[in-house]
Structures are given as C-alpha cells and as structure tokens.
Computed example of a mutant assay.
Amino acid sequence: MTIFPHVFAESEERQELRRQVAKLAAKYGREWFTDKARAGDKTTDLWLEVAKNGYLGINIPEEHGGGGGGIGDIAAVCEELAAQGCPLLLMVVSPAICGTIISRFGTEEQKQRWLPGICDGTGTMAFAITEPDAGTNSHAITTTARRDGDGWVLTGQKIYISGVDEADHVLIVARAEDARTGRLKPCLFVVPTVAPGFEHRDIPMEIVSPEKQFTVFLDDVRLSDDHLVGDEDAGLEQLFAGLNPERIMAASFSTGLARFALGKAAAYAKERAVFGQPIGAHQAIAHPLAQSHIEVELARLMTQKAAALYDAGDDAGAGEAANMAKYAAAEAACDAVDRAVQTHGGNGITQEFGMAGLLVATRAGRIAPVSREMILNYVAMHSLGLPKSY
C-alpha cells in the first residue's frame, strides 16, 4: 500500500506557497472583489499578478511555461485566493482542467501553442461540457463533431460555461462517430472564440461574481485537425483526466470560501457583545462555528488525499477521493456560510458585512461541477458495490 505523508502534513514548500498566495490576495481582498463584480468589471489585475508570480500555471510542466508542480499545488493556490475572499472560478477551468488535459494528451505543437498563455494569464481557456438537455448525464451530449476532409465540423449547444468572454479558446467536449462501431464517442476540441459559427450569450445569475456564465452556440464551426486534443478513439480516459482535477479544484474553492466565512464569523463573535459579554462566549454561537471548522478541515484532508493520488498517477483512486472531497467540501461550505450569516444576525444579510452573497456562491458547489446526488450514486456503486440506480 502506498502511503502519502504529505496528505497529513503538507511540505514546507506547499505551506510557503499558501502563505505567499494568501499575502498576494490580501492586497486585494473581498471588498475589492465584490466591488468589481457589482460594477460588472473583471478581476484581471489579480489574475495577471497571480500569473506573474508563477502561481497560475504552477501545475503545468516547466518546459511549457509552468511551475512543474501538481494538482495539489494549483488546488492550494485556488483555496488560498478564496480564503482571502477572492475566489477565481477560472482557475478551476483554465489551468486545472484545460491545462491538465493538454499537458497529458496534446501534441508537442499544441502544448507550445496553448500552455504558455494559460500559464501567463494572456491565453485563458474555458471548458464546455454541460448541455441544456443532457444535464448531469454526460453520455447524452448531442454536440457532434463530424469529419470534413482533413478537418472537423462542430454543431451543438452548451450551457453554464464559465468565463467565455475572458477566454481566447474553449475546450469543447463533442461526440464523433466511431468508424468501426458507428457509436458516438467523446472527443475534445480547442475552439477559438472568434471562429465563424461560434456564438455565446450571457446568462443572468444571482451570484455575485465577476466571472459570468454563458450559453454557447456552435453552428457548423470548422476546425483543422490540429484542434483535436489527443486521440479521437481515447474517449472517456481523456475526459476524466480533466474532470478529476475539476472536482479537486471545486473542493478547494469551497473550503477556501468556508474558511473566509468562518474567519469573519469568529472575528465578529469576539467583538460583538450582548448582555455584557462577547456572543462567542455562548455555546449557541461557539458550537456551530466549531463544528464547521471540524467539517472544513476534514474536507481539506480528503482534498489533499485526492490530489496526492492524482499526482501519483492513480486515476481510479483519485476518482473516488475527488468525488468524496467535492461532496464533503460543498456540504461543509454551505453549513459554514449559513452559520456565519446567523452569527452576524441582521448584519449577516447586509452588503456591508458581505456574508449573504456567499450563500449563493457556496450553494452552487452542491450543484456544479457535479451534483451531490450523482456523487452519492458514484459512491454507492463504486465504493459500496450497490446496483446501479440510474
């Protein structure tokens, strides 16, 4: 049995990475982040500074402009940014999903073309898998890719795609016909956002975030063969090379927000006095916050395990752990923010104290990138060996 000591105690290098990212993000802070979001502005300054310091592409090989680290490193960056109130959703997408897939399966020419821009922040890439009628069932994707001479033609529609307006390219999951069986198989294509036939439409959201969601339309988008990433026959192996990091990053996103909310709640509970003593002295306040701290730390531990397994090349073990981490982190974050709002009382639903907006942000973690119900299905089937229920 392989043992990963750093699952339980992160290396000094990883801890220093966390400290430096937290220090950088603290220069901006939650107020700056929400002001940008409410004004319809972008957090490009923070994004580029993260990149300039080498953190944005820390998981990408050095020869392609990255830091040569692993998913555990980029997850730590994601978490620390969120813990300072500056969650960058596109970190989950551009370096972690797209960067990982291209690093593992792209040609050398594709790596040289797209990875440096992902690392330095000038070539952000979005990721598109979700469809209006497929929902959680990725096997029901209807976006198709058909051969046309020495290239491809993509047709279909995607929904809830993050940051298309900030991306130069979108890594799109389509389905191509297998010449041997006639069945459709998943394939991955890098599509320029300026390609003829590519359109995107903003989806109004309640969440306070500078990163918008879009519906994407593909109307006979023509691509040369070098926009296909990996082997067209590899199918799900290539797709899940990106989806397991996505779950790990989503977990870190959630635990970071939870830590931010708990920090604010604990500070308020020490300062706010009622009946002659701080409200934190009352167990009705102290115990829920303590419980959330325990839940968040447990979720962080599972996230570290998932990252360690993935970086060690254990895709099967990482799949189980990544799903569990994402589930645990989303649940812990929702509870932590709810308790933080309650700790603040009426102040918890004001813009001044900034707690209420986190309710929607953390609640999204129970839905995306995979719903908690589908994770429970996965664990029931693969961990417990129960019959398939869907």
Rank of each mutant, 00 (worst) to 15 (best):
P196E: 07
A174P: 12
I207D: 01
K212N: 15
G235Y: 05
I207R: 13
D202Q: 11
D165L: 01
D202C: 07
K212S: 15
T193C: 09
L243W: 04
R175N: 12
D220V: 01
A176Q: 12
L188S: 07
A234G: 06
L243V: 08
A234T: 10
V164P: 05
R180Y: 09
T193P: 01
L188T: 09
Q238H: 08
V170T: 10
D220N: 10
S224T: 14
L243A: 11
T193W: 00
T181I: 04
D219S: 11
L223Q: 07
L218D: 00
D233N: 15
G230C: 11
L223F: 02
F214T: 14
L171R: 12
F214S: 08
F217M: 14
E211M: 11
S224D: 15
L184F: 14
T181Q: 01
K185G: 03
P245W: 03
V194Y: 05
D231Q: 06
D202M: 09
C187D: 11
L184D: 10
A176N: 11
Q238G: 13
E211S: 08
A179P: 12
I203D: 05
E211G: 09
V216T: 05
L236V: 14
D219Q: 11
L239M: 06
L223T: 03
V194W: 04
H227K: 13
R201F: 11
P196M: 03
R183S: 10
V190Y: 04
D178C: 12
V221Q: 00
I203P: 07
H200D: 06
K185Q: 13
H200P: 09
G242C: 10
D165S: 14
V164C: 05
C187A: 15
R183W: 01
Q238F: 07
G182C: 07
F198L: 02
P186L: 11
Q238T: 13
D165V: 04
E206L: 11
D225K: 13
P192W: 06
T181V: 04
K185S: 11
V229L: 08
E206N: 15
V194C: 06
V208Y: 02
I161T: 14
A195G: 05
P204M: 08
F217K: 14
L171Y: 09
P245C: 08
E177F: 09
E199M: 11
